[in-house]
Design a binder for these strands. Structure first.
Lengths: 182, 182
DNA sequence: ACCTGAACACCGTTCAAGT
DNA sequence: ACCTGAACACCGTTCAAGT
C-alpha cells in the first residue's frame, strides 16, 4: 500500500495521490483503505518517514565532523528532492517522526558533539539544520503553479545555493564563541 | 474580498477558507468570485503578499547592518506567525511575489551590502535568509494534526531557537573569508 | 481480518444566461 | 461589469453489511 502510494506520487504527483486513486490502483474499493490506515494524514506520515530511509549517513568516525554534517544534510536534501511534491508536506507536518527520522537525528547530534557543540546547543543546532534543509528543498522543487515571469533558479543553482548557506550555517554553529570547544 | 478571506483565515483556519465559504461570507454565489479572481491559487498569492505589508523594516541608516538584518528577519518571522496556517503555503508557493515581498528583498540586499556582502553572494544570502525564516515559522506554527506524544517547542522556545540559528547564519555570512570585506 | 455498496457532506470550477 | 442557477467532476470518510 505504501509502495503503491509512492508509485502514484512519483508518476502522477501529489494531487493525484487521492484515497480513491490509490484504491483503484490496488483494485479495491475506496473505503477498504480504512481497514489498513486510520486516515490520509496517517498514510502521508508513513510515507514521509519511509522516504528518509535512503539518506546516506557518513561513517561515524569521519575525520572532520563538520564535513560529515555537510554530507549528511546534502544527502537529505537530495533525497527530499526525489519526491518534490512531498517537500512542502514535510514543512506542513514539521518533519517526519518515524524511526528513520530518529536515526538521522541521532547521527547529527553525535557529529555536532564531535564538532564541539554540546547540549543544549546541539539540540538547537539540529532543529536549525532540519529547518534549513527542508526549507531549501521546498524552494528548489518546482512550484505548484507557474505564475508570470519568475526568475527561478535551476536545480544546479538551487543546490549550490543550499550548499553555500549550509557552509555559512555550519561555520556559525561551530565557531560560536559562546560555545564550549572540545 | 481579500479582507474577507483574511478574516475567514484568522477565525476559522485555512481549511475553512474555501471559495464557497468565502462566497457565503460575502453574501454572493460561489461562482461570482470568479468574476474577481482567476482561481483560488491567485487569491492565496494575493493574500500571501498582503500579509507581508506589516513587516517592520529597520531604519536604513542603522549603525550595525547585521543588527538590522536580524531585526528585519525577526519581524518577518513574527508577522508570518500571525497567520500560522498560511506559513506552509509560503513554502509551497516558494515565498510571495508581490510588491511587499519585493520591498523587503530590496532592503535586505542593501543591508547585506553595508555588511560587506557584495553580489553575487548577497543574492545567495537573501535566498538563504528567506528560506530559513519561512522554514522556522513553519516549524513554529502548530501542526495540522497532533499525532502521539510529540515533544514540541512552545512559541517562546521556537522564537529563541529561530534567533539562535539566525545569529549563526548571519555570523557565517558576514565572516565568510571568501567574501570581500568593506 | 478484510472487503463492499451506498451514501453523506463537502470541494473548485464552468457554462449559459440574466441585469 | 457583476451576478446567478445548475451542473460537472471530483474529494475524504462513515455506516451497515457481507465473507
Amino acid at each position: 500500500m505504501l509502495a503503491a502510494a509512492r508509485d502514484l506520487l512519483t508518476h502522477r504527483g501529489l494531487q493525484a495521490l487521492t484515497m480513491r486513486a490509490l484504491a483503484e490502483r490496488l483494485d479495491v474499493a475506496p473505503n477498504t483503505l480504512y481497514s489498513h490506515v486510520a486516515n490520509k494524514t496517517a498514510l502521508i506520515d508513513d510515507l514521509l518517514d519511509e522516504v528518509l530511509a535512503e539518506v546516506q549517513a557518513p561513517t561515524p568516525d569521519i575525520e572532520d565532523p563538520t564535513v560529515g554534517l555537510h554530507q549528511l544534510m546534502a544527502s537529505a536534501y537530495d533525497v527530499l528532492l526525489v519526491h518534490p511534491d512531498l517537500v512542502p508536506v514535510y514543512l506542513a507536518r514539521q518533519g517526519a517522526r518515524g524511526p528513520h527520522a530518529q536515526r538521522l537525528g541521532d547521527i547529527t547530534i553525535a557529529l555536532l558533539r564531535r564538532a564541539g557543540v554540546v547540549e543544549p546547543a546541539a539540540a538547537e543546532a539540529l532543529r536549525v539544520l532540519i529547518i534549513y534543509t527542508i526549507g531549501s528543498a521546498a524552494f528548489a522543487s518546482r512550484p505548484p503553479l507557474a505564475t508570470g515571469t519568475e526568475h527561478r533558479l535551476n536545480p544546479d543553482e538551487s543546490a549550490a545555493n543550499f550548499a553555500n548557506g549550509l557552509r555559512w550555517l555550519l561555520a556559525g554553529i561551530v565557531q560560536d564563541p559562546t560555545q564550549v570547544r572540545r
